[in-house]
Design a protein around this nucleic acid. Structure first.
Lengths: 234, 234
DNA sequence: GGTCGTATGATTGTCAACAATCCGAGGAGT
DNA sequence: ACTCCTCGGATTGTTGACAATCATACGACC
């Protein structure tokens, strides 16, 4: 009779606060190493310390915060080895998502969504807006995962994409100088869409791997997904 | 001067409780769908509801608990589609771990650890102890991930292995009847070790995928990693 | 001068009480 | 018999207060 209406299930306070904290960490409002003072944050969110602590525990279990007992919670700081760690994990997750899509998803619909993100990337490039470009880039990958329909891959990817943005912020200086390659980045994404449309799984996965490897080589010169983790693996 | 002594960093109460809750969910002491009454659990852990709630929020963010506001927290219940979801995610994670190992790990040392787990599997088989066999099986995969040295892969795998055990418990009936294939399972694991020792990445990854696919086909007859997710993908 | 001990302030960890919401039983009305 | 309303018990959500721990500044002592 009525169109399928889903159960209400309102969001818990901890979930809302956790989301805002994630956003703050991702955008750099809470830079790596920052201590999260409970009193101050609780006042800012206009809640007591209870719900705030619950939210922070979520981020601890996601690996975005590190806890030192009786000392406080700190935003994790990324070491060089984390670049490889993050991107190899992303590669695994996005590979799996792509496989699901090719093997049983609505490829054409997804390709359209992805194409929108790439269009935004090109737009951001034309307007010389690096922040918007990064945002569109991440949205591309987020959409790819989302479209796979896997709750678990989505949850993993969410954290990994936040950490990716943290990497980019931390290495912003060295990132800018390679900025001329933005055309190539757009092309890479377009080729991925093309392979998805064609249903060419081998090519799609290969392009994804190469895409991740490119990023690793840009962010951590001298290392590569194909040459294995750095000696000081985390 | 002194041998490298690491910072103390004691475990938080929430972390301890969270670990015990995970254990209880994994072993089936808290079956899927169970509501976690705060008063009762807090009394059992001999803490107040505060730390307990913090611990439970961790499990919510890991996806092991689902939260219904003003109603309570429940152990997730696994639907048929989750089998594919879990195993495809596991496949991705373990693939990535295996790649790291082949490309930059101490293959021989790891192979030894894995061989121990397989030996325990064979032992459990001889004594007709299915619980011990499952435990050894999971320890094999846990060790594989652990040896990869990736914090992120390890975190993902921890949750996935718990969910794997939940699947096995839920489908225990249909699992037992295929029990004659235990030799084959041991052999599969041994072949994986062999490929790892040889450093044959392509073979290693292929064996891992096949291993996961076998499990999917056993647990959810008619579906396969290679044929794509079921229509009602979660 | 340098090191150790001590006190002080601030922060985190924990708890018990209060408020808000949900669920079920019971009864009135049709 | 069925529906709706209401009420009571139980559970969750939130808060402020208290205890424990940590970091820093200051002063005593060698």
């Amino acid at each position: 009779m009525l169109p399928d209406l889903e159960p209400v299930n309102r969001e818990s306070t901890a979930a809302i606060i956790a989301r805002q904290l994630r956003e703050a960490i991702m955008t750099g409002s809470l830079p790596p190493g920052t201590q999260l003072g409970e009193t101050e944050l609780a006042a800012r969110f206009e809640v007591s310390r209870g719900p705030l602590r619950e939210a922070m525990q979520r981020l601890v279990s996601e690996g975005l915060l590190r806890s030192e007992r009786h000392r406080g919670l700190f935003v994790i700081d990324l070491e060089p080895a984390d670049v490889y760690d993050i991107y190899s994990a992303r590669c695994a997750v996005e590979r799996a998502a792509a496989m699901r899509l090719v093997r049983g998803g609505d490829r054409e619909r997804v390709a359209g969504i992805l194409a929108d993100a790439v269009k935004d990337m090109a737009e951001a490039d034309k307007q010389d807006d690096p922040a918007a470009l990064t945002e569109a880039d991440l949205r591309f990958h987020e959409a790819l995962i989302e479209a796979s329909g896997s709750r678990r891959l989505a949850r993993m990817a969410r954290t990994l994409l936040i950490e990716t943005r943290m990497c980019l912020s931390a290495l912003q200086g060295t990132y800018r100088k390679d900025y001329q390659d933005v055309d190539e980045r757009v092309t890479e994404h377009n080729r991925i869409i093309q392979a998805l449309r064609a249903g060419d799984e081998a090519k799609l996965l290969g392009l994804l791997e190469a895409h991740m490897d490119d990023a690793v080589q840009r962010l951590a010169p001298g290392t590569s997904l194909y040459s294995g983790p750095a000696p000081a693996a985390s």
